[in-house]
């Protein structure tokens, strides 16, 4: 099956947040209970962060330009569906897998809500629902895709900021769009997700460097995750097996020996035995 991708062109996004609503509707996600700190914090962003029942949000990046006018940058945030996915690497229960079409699929029955994926994701995307004890994230509407439909957010996007299709096609579109933007004077326009983490299945067209949109410039699987899975786990298992085998060996070797300490009636000198 060909790899699919969602293309997010932030230069066309008006932050209408229709995608957020469509996502909630299709996935039947209830509203998040507003946190105590939900009071107005000076931003027009709807939610402070992704949440167990909020798979996507439009993040607002606000700054003033030279003329003291507020400039907005919007970015639709959600799972990047990485090829080298840290969440898959650290998921002990194999609840997260990479499908042939590129989707990072979460099997909710296998998930035990340990939160390893949430901590190790370079984008901090998965969130653990404390009530259901399951980690959640964007599914890329795998169920819709399987039925030849586009993801709910893409279908609802009125400005054409979201697109969906075969990954190579989306990349072509992204490159063409970046060329156009650069010709129009957006010198820093770039593609994000083409090569990052082995190539992601969510691709961005950004008008500025990734950091300006809250994205890491060079996202990596955490070193600790690699050390843990590739070295820590097998070394730990080897230490346990070796100690168990050695103890068992000593047990059978010694079990019939008469090694019990005996009284020698000496004055604290060296004693012999075991």
């Amino acid at each position: 099956m060909a790899q699919v991708a969602k293309l997010i062109d932030v230069t066309k996004c008006t932050a209408c947040r229709g995608c957020q609503v469509a996502c909630k509707q299709w996935n039947e996600l209830p509203v998040e209970a507003p946190p105590k700190e939900m009071a107005f914090t000076g931003t027009l962003q709807s939610h402070p962060d992704l949440a167990p029942n909020t798979f996507t949000i439009i993040q607002f990046f606000e700054e003033k330009d030279d003329t003291n006018t507020v400039k907005y940058r919007f970015r639709k945030t959600g799972c990047m569906h990485c090829t080298d996915a840290a969440c898959i690497l650290v998921c002990e229960k194999k609840a997260l897998t990479k499908l042939e079409n590129g989707i990072v699929y979460r099997d909710k029955d296998k998930c035990i809500g340990c939160g390893y994926c949430a901590q190790n994701c370079p984008f901090q995307v998965p969130k653990v629902n404390p009530k259901t004890e399951k980690a959640t994230k964007c599914t890329l509407c795998g169920d819709r895709i399987a039925n030849k439909m586009k993801p709910a957010c893409v279908t609802t996007c009125i400005t054409g900021a979201l697109d969906f299709g075969p990954r190579d096609e989306m990349l072509k579109k992204a490159k063409k769009r970046v060329e156009t933007l650069q010709k129009q004077g957006v010198a820093n326009a770039n593609i994000y997700g083409e090569k990052e983490l082995g190539g992601t299945n969510v691709i961005y067209v950004l008008a500025d460097k990734p950091e300006a949109y809250g994205l890491p410039a060079d996202p990596q699987i955490p070193l600790t995750a690699t050390l843990w899975q590739q070295y820590g786990k097998p070394i730990g298992a080897a230490v346990f097996c070796a100690s168990f085998a050695t103890t068992l060996f000593a047990f059978f070797l010694n079990r019939k020996k008469d090694l019990a300490p005996k009284l020698h009636h000496h004055e604290g000198g060296k004693s012999h035995g075991v």
Partner: peptide
Amino acid sequence: ALWCYPLHSLLAPCLTA
């Protein structure tokens, strides 16, 4: 926190040994 994951999984079998 990220260092605690490999350390916990390495210390557990070492302590068990």
